[in-house]
């Protein structure tokens, strides 16, 4: 009989900001994949739910010296002192020891939003309304992700439904490890510019692992010591200098 001992992965991303055109397809693909409902009529950018949000950030110069960079900001999957995990009174957030993915369990969440306050990356969202799709759209929902009820916090979990599917496929083939190509989050798959590279940071032969150590690659708010597993890359110095402040500011 199979005993536990799965290998330890550490899933992460490297996002090349110089390639990102800010088209927004990743945000839509994310919402479709994870059954995030369209905005309620009154929803705004403060109350909306976007597991992945692309922030346009300007260098602050006037025309025409102005420059804009688009920063896809998602759960940074903090590997150290994960702030949301440490504050949750309900044990509704946890770091999966075998994948490093920070998981949010809406069924346990009581909706106190402490985690949202604690998250330095503003990557957590609260369901202010019941999830509502236009009439008839229910049949178009992704069967691999359960919709969340009103009153809970939610966030990116690296398309966990796709990890399930990859594991199932591996198990059916009698394999223990998933094939890397079988587990690709929706934003990575849909990016027209191929700006996002995803994979196991623990596997040193992996492109994502190599890129995470490459020159001009940085993490946001490194001084907090949260060890995010989302890395960013830009050849522009003013962009890299932004790393010390949250882009939402």
């Amino acid at each position: 009989m199979e005993q536990t001992a799965q290998s330890k992965s550490r899933y992460g991303m490297v996002i090349d900001l110089d390639r990102c055109t800010g088209c927004g397809v990743c945000m839509v693909a994310c919402a479709v994949e994870n059954n995030v409902a369209p905005a309620e009529q009154k929803a705004t950018e403060r109350t909306g739910v976007t597991w992945l949000r692309v922030y346009p950030v300007s260098n602050g110069e006037g025309f025409p010296a102005n420059d804009t960079v688009f920063i896809p900001m998602t759960c940074q999957q903090c590997g150290n002192h994960t702030p949301c995990v440490s504050v949750c009174p309900q044990n509704a957030v946890e770091v999966d020891p075998s994948t490093g993915i920070v998981g949010q369990i809406p069924q346990r969440c009581l909706g106190c939003r402490y985690c949202m306050t604690a998250c330095p990356y503003h990557a957590r969202y609260f369901d202010w309304w019941d999830p509502q799709w236009p009439e008839g759209t229910e049949v178009l929902l992704n069967p691999d992700v359960a919709p969340r009820m009103r009153g809970v916090a939610e966030k990116c979990n690296f398309c966990h439904g796709r990890l399930h599917a990859a594991r199932t496929k591996a198990a059916a083939a009698g394999r223990k490890e998933i094939a890397a190509g079988d587990y690709v989050p929706a934003c990575v798959e849909s990016c027209p510019s191929r700006a996002i590279v995803f994979g196991d940071l623990a596997d040193e032969t992996n492109e994502v692992s190599r890129l995470s150590h490459s020159i001009n690659t940085f993490q946001f708010l490194p001084k907090l010591g949260t060890a995010p597993k989302i890395f960013y890359h830009s050849a522009k110095e003013w962009v890299r200098k932004m790393a010390d402040r949250a882009p939402l500011a």
């Binding site: 800010g22 927004g24 945000m27 839509v28 994310c30 919402a31 479709v32 995030v36 409902a37 369209p38 905005a39 929803a43 705004t44 950018e45 109350t47 909306g48 739910v49 976007t50 949000r53 692309v54 922030y55 346009p56 006037g62 025309f63 688009f70 799709w133 236009p134």
Partner: peptide
């Protein structure tokens, strides 16, 4: 646009909703 495009137009500032006018600060 499908209602879920609200992620770009309404729930974030990535794209502007109709009826907004962008003007140089000066």
């Amino acid at each position: 646009v499908a209602p879920v495009l609200s992620k770009l137009f309404q729930e974030s500032h990535l794209r502007s909703l109709g009826g907004r006018v962008h003007i140089n600060p000066s």
